[in-house]
Design a binder for these strands. Structure first.
Lengths: 165, 165
DNA sequence: CCCCACTCGATGCACCTGCATCAATCTTGA
DNA sequence: TCAAGATTGATGCAGGTGCATCGAGTGGGG
């Protein structure tokens, strides 16, 4: 016979969906009002800036960000159009390329982190104690493992200029 | 001086974003593979089916679903195109209209709930104990209250054919 | 060496979203 | 009663996403 999902699981699911979309909206709104591009740009710039010598293969970026290949491709287009990154040929594999963050890119990433971290503090930090935030992380991690590898840094290891959804 | 967001809050934020997008992807994939339309359709059909006499003003639907006005408008277009709902004139306010769910709509909603609930069970229920699901709900609720009213049913009250993100 | 299978990245298409704005209608208050 | 403003719902436009597919390039087995 078909198992009925527990009321608790369903309720948790509903909240997970609603709350994250609300919080995300709030954060994106704050960034937008401050005149910044979408969060996805920030994520990409952060990954690039963290890479040794500031460049990555699109394939790497894609795996880091957990977004589909075509999405990466077009995101890079936009970054390049805005002068935040540039494409460089890849000598060892002529199919491929490298994407390198520019100075403007690094600078924007840092400025965005200012607004971004403030928003996180406003919408998350101020609502949860550190202990609760840790609990939340733990519960979410268990959920995340559900479908595929999680590729998340351990709860503690979040360096100074940090996120990347 | 500017306050730096706590590492814990940032970490929780990252997990919230990543985990929900992964879990949501998984669930949507399952539904899509079973040949069903997107979850948003389900949500709308559920709201309509729950309404007394199966009809709602677009404005109501919009407020229930917490999506923008134009989004509701176009979602209704699609439902009507597929014969899942129909528009009815609103005699008391000629600007407005009623949207009524059709039999096909009710039937689809029920069939989707089968697949949907199975997916929730698979990706949430089987990963968390009921107690943990309750804890998660509680933590998320506190976050949700952060930005605007939450409009969520109390943790317990989730009736038989239930969700709606 | 060559062919086949695979990986890398781009792109055309459909659809969906956000934003701004519109026309129609309702409500308010002077 | 009537004008000003608010509310309802639709829509043109720009941009973003998913899907399928493509062409270029690589690499391994015969």
């Amino acid at each position: 016979m078909k198992r009925k999902p527990s009321t608790e699981a369903t309720s948790a699911w509903i909240r997970l969906m609603r709350v994250q979309s609300r919080v995300l909206d709030c954060v994106e709104q704050d960034l937008k009002k401050a005149g910044f591009p979408p969060l996805a740009w920030y994520d990409a710039l952060l990954e690039l800036s963290r890479a040794p010598s500031g460049e990555l293969r699109p394939v790497e970026l894609e795996r880091q960000m957990l977004i589909p290949q075509y999405s990466t491709s077009r995101l890079i287009d936009r970054l390049v159009d805005e002068g935040l990154a540039c494409r460089r040929e890849c000598k060892i594999d002529k199919r491929g390329q490298f994407v390198e963050i520019t100075e403007a890119g690094r600078e924007l990433q840092k400025r965005m982190w200012g607004a971004y971290s403030a928003a996180i503090e406003k919408y998350v930090g101020s609502k949860l104690s550190d202990a609760d935030a840790v609990k939340l992380s733990g519960l979410l991690d268990r959920l995340g493992c559900a479908c595929g590898e999680m590729k998340l840094p351990p709860v503690v290891n979040v360096n100074e200029t940090s996120p990347s959804r």
